[in-house]
Design a protein around this nucleic acid. Structure first.
Length: 270
RNA sequence: GGCCGGGUAGCUCAGUCGGCAGAGCACACGCCUGAAAAGCGUGGGGUCGACGGAUCGACGCCGUCCCCGGCCA
C-alpha cells in the first residue's frame, strides 16, 4: 500500500527524513486511483533490486505480504489476464448456483487445481477458470505452487521477527491510536476530494473503514476498532504464510524489538 | 404502583405446531500463483434470568419472583 501516493499516515510510510537517510524504493510510484497487482509489484521490485545491485549495493526487502515477497524472490510466473473474460466469469458466479457451476467446470477441466481451492472461494475459482480459458492450459500447470520452496530467483537471506501475541496485539492498538493522532482521518478526507480510490487502494486497512464511516456518517471509533481487528487478522495470515517457509531464520523479540538487532546485523553482513 | 415489550454463545439477535440449541460478528486453528492490507475453510464455546407446576417430553405452556426498556399514573 506504500506504493500509493497520498496514503502516508495509515501505511506507516517512511518519513522524508528517513528516506533521506536511507534511499527507499517502490514507494509513491502510483496514484491511488490506479490498480496494483502482484505481477506489477514483481516487475517494479525486481527492477529496483537490479538497480541497487548494479550500483554495488545490497537491497533490503521488507515484506508485508507473503505473496508479494514470493513474487519477487521466487520464480513465480503469473499466467495472463483478461479483464473482459474475468468480468463475464464474475457475473456468472454472481447468479444463484453460479459458484457451484463454476466449481464443477473447474473440476472437469483441472482436477489438480480443484484440490487447492475451496468450493466457496469465488475469487480464486474465477481466476483459475480465467487462466484455463485464456491459455487453454490447466491452472495447475503454472508452477509447482506456493508451498514449494526451491531456489530463489537471486541470492537472498530471509529473516523473520517473531513477536509474542500479547505484545503484537498491544502494539497494533497503539499504532492505530498514534495514526489517528497523526491525522489519519484528515488524510483520508483529502484523498477522497473529487475522486474515488481504485479497488486495490480502497481496501487498505484503516482507509477502507474510515471511508465507510465518512460516507455513511458512522462512528469513527468503531471504524478504528474494526481496523485494529483487521490488522490482527492480517498479522495472523502473515504468520501462517511465512511460518511454512523453511528458508526463513526466525529471531525472537520481546516487548523491545531492538533486541534482535545484533542477530539481524550479523545476518546482513554475513 | 398499573399496562406493554424484552431477558438464549463474549457481542447483536433468530428459534415455525412443545420433539437433538442456531446465525452473524468476535476468538482459536488453517488454506493460498495477475484483487493478497484481498478471498476462503474448519473449530471451541450455552444454568435458554431464577424457582415451582402440568406434560412421555419445555427455550417455548401455566404460576410466582428478579432484572432491562417504553407508556400511563
Amino acid at each position: 500500500m506504500q506504493v500509493y501516493r497520498g496514503l502516508d499516515v495509515g501505511t506507516a510510510k517512511p518519513t522524508v527524513a528517513e528516506r533521506a537517510a536511507v534511499p527507499h524504493h517502490v514507494i509513491d510510484v502510483v496514484e491511488p486511483t490506479e490498480e496494483w497487482s502482484a505481477m506489477r509489484h514483481q516487475a517494479v521490485a525486481r527492477a529496483a533490486v537490479a538497480d541497487i545491485e548494479a550500483r554495488g549495493k545490497r537491497a533490503l526487502l521488507v515484506g508485508g505480504t507473503g505473496l508479494y515477497v514470493q513474487a519477487v524472490v521466487d520464480d513465480l510466473r503469473f499466467p495472463g489476464e483478461d479483464p473482459d473474460l474475468r468480468a463475464e466469469l464474475e457475473a456468472a458466479t454472481a447468479e444463484p448456483g453460479g459458484v457451484a457451476a463454476a466449481y464443477d467446470e473447474l473440476r472437469r477441466r483441472d482436477p489438480d487445481a480443484v484440490e487447492k481451492i475451496d468450493p466457496h472461494n469465488a475469487r480464486r475459482i474465477v481466476r483459475a477458470l480465467e487462466v484455463i480459458r485464456l491459455t487453454g492450459k490447466p491452472f495447475s500447470s503454472f508452477g509447482a505452487g506456493l508451498d514449494q520452496f526451491g531456489p530463489t530467483a537471486f541470492p537472498v537471506r530471509m529473516v523473520g521477527i517473531w513477536v509474542p501475541r500479547d505484545v503484537l496485539n498491544a502494539r497494533i492498538a497503539e499504532r492505530f491510536a498514534a495514526m489517528r493522532d497523526a491525522g489519519l482521518v484528515d488524510e483520508v478526507q483529502q484523498l477522497l476530494g473529487g475522486r474515488s480510490l481504485s479497488r486495490t487502494a480502497s481496501q487498505a486497512i484503516g482507509y477502507k473503514e474510515i471511508i465507510g464511516a465518512l460516507s455513511d456518517h458512522g462512528s469513527l471509533d468503531e471504524a478504528l476498532d474494526t481496523a485494529v481487528r483487521r490488522t490482527r487478522s492480517f498479522a495472523r495470515r502473515q504468520r501462517m504464510w511465512f511460518r511454512r517457509d523453511p528458508r526463513i531464520t526466525w529471531l525472537g523479540a520481546t516487548d523491545n524489538h531492538c533486541v534482535v538487532l545484533p542477530a539481524l546485523l550479523a545476518t546482513w553482513s554475513s
